[in-house]
């Protein structure tokens, strides 16, 4: 079998197993958390009778194992179930309906950020390797390390203060809905995208630089230099192809972060993404929503890591054509 195909299949199989383990872990940990959905929703107003009525209506009076099996069975049939919120009424809110628009927003922001951040950090990293230890290298390093070391909410507040309140280039709130046009969505998501870019550029840039510098010491780079290949060409043509594997891994890691880890930025800019949804669902013990979010997050990691592996195989002839 072709090695790429083999890896993909192997990884997907393992991925499914991971998803299963994740679902068990999440379900078990939510069960172990004190309090249930009824108590969380009713808060100080929870009396034993109302809690009992609530639990009966959403089926929480049954044993956890039964509920888990039922849930996983439905998932296998493509049904994510209904959110506990509004479960008693005739308008049930299905988990897919709840998640779909949020997931779209999250992917929108992640892709928007990635389109800016990935080329930018590759460019900065290659240049930094090329002009190693120059003032340019030092400046880029200092600036990106500062932005990664600053908490993201602080960067968000700073950007909000200067770009939204003082300069009025961007809105302070990134509220979007289905009726928002693409251009407006881009404009409204501008500040969160800049914030996230500043947060992730350092990691990818440093990795690119380090991977390249590592290779610069190898004999074939010396050879290239001796046969008179210009430095720039040597890096782009000879070093970079061999550096793709580590770079792809770190890019995948950061892209996954963009999907699953941006809840702070969402809260600060009031951007209706999936992170906020999951946090709300956890604090109210809305199990079906938490489970679905967790599966999506796990799947994101699995798929992105898989793509990184595929990239490393394709860019490495030794892996692509094994003996």
């Amino acid at each position: 079998m072709h090695p790429v195909l083999k890896t993909v299949l192997q990884r997907l199989g393992l991925g499914l197993l991971t998803l299963f383990v994740v679902s068990v872990l999440i379900f078990a940990s939510l069960e172990m958390l004190p309090g249930g959905f009824a108590e969380a929703i009713l808060g100080q107003g929870a009396t034993p009778e109302t809690v009992a009525a609530f639990n009966k209506q959403i089926g929480l009076d049954r044993p956890a194992a039964v509920r888990y099996v039922e849930w996983i069975w439905n998932i296998l049939h493509g049904d994510f179930g209904y959110s506990y919120a509004g479960m008693g009424g005739s308008i049930k809110r299905s988990v897919s309906d709840l998640i779909a628009p949020r997931l779209y927003n999250t992917f929108f922001l992640a892709i928007m950020t990635a389109i800016v951040a990935v080329p930018l950090s590759l460019f900065l990293g290659i240049m930094a390797a090329l002009y190693r230890n120059s003032w340019y290298d030092r400046t880029v390093n200092a600036v990106t390390l500062t932005t990664i070391a600053t908490p993201e909410f602080f960067i968000a507040y700073l950007l909000m203060f200067f770009l939204a309140i003082k300069a009025k280039w961007f809105p302070t709130l990134s509220t979007v809905s289905e009726s928002t046009t693409l251009l407006e969505h881009l404009w409204r998501a501008g500040l969160p995208a800049i914030t996230l870019t500043l947060v992730i550029v350092a990691h990818m840039m440093r990795m690119t630089r380090a991977a390249l510098i590592n290779l610069l010491a190898s004999p074939y780079m010396e050879m290239a230099q001796l046969k008179g290949v210009p430095r720039r060409e040597a890096i782009v043509k000879h070093a970079l192809p061999n550096a793709w594997a580590p770079i792809a891994t770190v890019i995948a890691f950061n892209l996954a972060y963009l999907v699953v880890g941006v809840v702070v930025v969402e809260v600060v800019f009031v951007y209706p993404g999936i992170g906020q949804l999951m946090v709300d669902a956890v604090s109210s013990r809305d199990m079906p929503v938490v489970q679905a979010c967790a599966l999506i997050f796990a799947a994101t990691y699995i798929l992105l890591n898989l793509s990184a592996d595929v990239v490393s195989i394709i860019t490495n002839p030794r892996l692509l054509h094994p003996k």
Binding site: I41, A85, G86, G89, L98, L277, D280, A281
Partner: peptide, 13 residues
């Protein structure tokens, strides 16, 4: 405001 908010006035938190 939370994503679990409902139109049911009995549950307005």
């Amino acid at each position: 405001g939370a994503t679990t908010d409902s139109m049911d006035p009995g549950l307005y938190p």
